[in-house]
Nucleic acid binder design. Structure first.
Lengths: 336, 336
DNA sequence: TTCTAGCACTCTTCTTTTTCAAGTGCTAAC
DNA sequence: GTTAGCACTTGAAAAAGAAGAGTGCTAGAA
């Protein structure tokens, strides 16, 4: 592809992103100072290379998946955020009271608002967190809350009913034993250490140790359960508004997928070990007309993934710019 | 309305619920052992009473909103759950490890699955909970987690960055003061008591009391903030599949509303003080073709609201039966 | 070579027309 | 009070037509 062809592809992508209509040769005459016939010829080349497609024999051109990919990899120019975009994000970025994960969540909400795409925040998987502390808080005669806190500040809590014969004192004593022995253990190992190290100890000392073990096991295994709690999807309904989803059936299917947190988690989860990954069209697994831009972050050890889900016809540069800005600012903030 | 007319209305509603097609006079001949002409005459009466409508001059009849209402209030027969419905719910009901609020959530998920409607669980508003305990857990040098637990076992946690000059010991000491003085205070009053009772104390004893006050104020005020966290909407995408929502625009609008937790909260929230409330059609505020069945529960002092959102053409009896079953079983379980 | 003007052709989209079946209301008779 | 019969209305689906946008190709100009 020579320079002119690249320019043409760029123009096709950008026009299509804006207008959502197949791009005809005429509409680009002015821009290139060429006749429509010449542009048609060049378009035919792009088509033979697989970068653009026709919906039907006499329609204008639409970027193909590999066209988008070429655009993203070679042609896209980094976009400076507009003042109003920055302004909206700054209200969060400047807020000193927000802890990293909350700040990122809020920023992604704003990004979803600004772009009308959906956004996803996948908290760092607590599996590699280390156990910090487990506490038992008695609520009333027969109810307790078990709290588990990790070294990254992730907190899980779970209520339990106590039987009449379960002794609260034994429960609290057990929590102390666990805190003494297991603090610093990776969450993923806690369950087995609980069984092989703690259970034998309490079995000797306590009457109702089976029940007690059961409670702690349950409280701790929620982390391992890969619960869907640490994922947040925002702006689901906004994506549906995008004009490519105009057919009732497509909308329903898309809504269904966006509503399925397990599925979204699967989509956004780390497959290949890259910091930025753009899944275009079929690669997104969501819908053939959909793109997922995914970005991992690691800010002072706190890791996670954010993603934007929108139409294939996405404002790639803008989204990349927004994500850059948010994560850069977060990093700066953390360093202070 | 005489008995026959009531029977007819009942038949129209139930046929329409099943077939989603306007009900013609012929289709009911067999059932009533009457000619279509007679049925037409009776239908005309129902129409003049406002219980059924025609989409156009020569179409079959469709129940009107007041027709549904009459059906729900006078004609609907309580439906016994099918074995498979019970079976699916029992896996949750029988589970002794689940605490009430979790069990209800899970049951509502199953109800959503069984019916293909959306379901909502609105946890009891924590505002009338009493403060049980507040704890500070240090995470690393400059990060802490503040945990707040109420007498109903609701837990909120929030991370804070510490400045270099904030003293962890002072923080913990303050939490002890709060626990001593404010335990048992309604959450809604905690903020003001914090300001007028605690702040003066720590102001005397501590250097960085402003920052410390700020942290506790923030941790505690999350409850009052009426955050959307205690609402759970399940099966959003399922409702969209209902045949009445076939037009792309309607689907988008509905998806938009279902995605808006604040709005759903508003819809489901307690307006009039009734235990069961059925909002049909326009009354639902969601969509003219939608019904919301809302039910409050109070199980041993733990209160909340559950709701089912589906088409106006809802299987009213079944949904009522399912909700009855779930709440009855929860009550039984609690009494044991 | 490279570009352009011109033309026939294709295909979508929008509108209009036609056809069909379902269902009604009314009248007159049972 | 009930029913058979009939004219009439309407929407939904299929078919037909018209308009417009855009293409590929050819032949000639720069």
């Amino acid at each position: 592809m020579d320079k002119r062809q690249e320019d043409l592809l760029k123009a096709i992508v950008e026009t299509y992103v804006k207008t959502v209509k197949p791009v005809g040769s005429k509409s680009l005459c002015q821009k290139f100072k060429l006749s429509s016939a010449t542009i048609r010829n060049e378009m035919a080349v792009l088509e033979s290379l697989g970068y653009v497609e026709k919906n039907h024999i006499s329609s204008g051109r639409v970027p193909s998946e590999s066209g988008y990919r070429y655009y993203v990899e070679h042609l896209m120019e980094p976009e400076k955020l507009t003042g109003s975009d920055v302004l909206k994000l700054q209200s969060i970025v400047k807020n000193q009271d927000l802890v990293l994960s909350d700040a990122i969540s809020k920023c992604m909400e704003i990004i979803s608002d600004l772009t009308n795409y959906a956004s996803v925040v996948l908290g760092s998987n607590a599996e590699d967190n280390l156990l910090k502390q487990i506490s038992i808080i008695p609520i009333d005669n027969n109810k307790i809350v078990a709290l588990v806190c990790t070294n990254r500040g992730v907190v899980e809590n779970k209520q339990f009913q106590l039987d009449a014969d379960t002794d609260l004192k034994e429960l609290i004593k057990t929590s102390e034993i666990i805190n003494k022995m297991l603090t610093g253990t990776p969450i993923s190992d806690v369950a087995s250490r609980l069984e092989f190290e703690i259970k034998p100890i309490i079995a000797k000392q306590m009457v109702d140790y089976e029940r007690i073990y059961h409670i702690f096991y349950n409280a701790l295994s929620d982390f391992a359960a890969q619960d869907t709690d640490d994922i947040r999807v925002v702006g689901r309904a906004k994506v549906l508004e995008q004009p490519e989803y105009s057919d009732a059936d497509t909308i329903k299917k898309l809504a269904y997928k966006l509503d399925d947190e397990k599925f979204i988690k699967h989509v956004v989860q780390d497959k290949d070990n890259e910091e930025i990954k753009i899944y275009i069209g079929k690669d997104s697994e969501v819908d053939p007309n959909t793109t997922v831009i995914k970005r991992k972050y690691d800010i002072n050890g706190e890791t996670g993934t954010v993603a934007v889900i929108g139409p294939k016809r996405m404002e790639y540069a803008r989204v990349m710019g927004l994500l850059d800005y948010v994560l850069d600012e977060m990093k700066k903030k953390d360093e202070k």
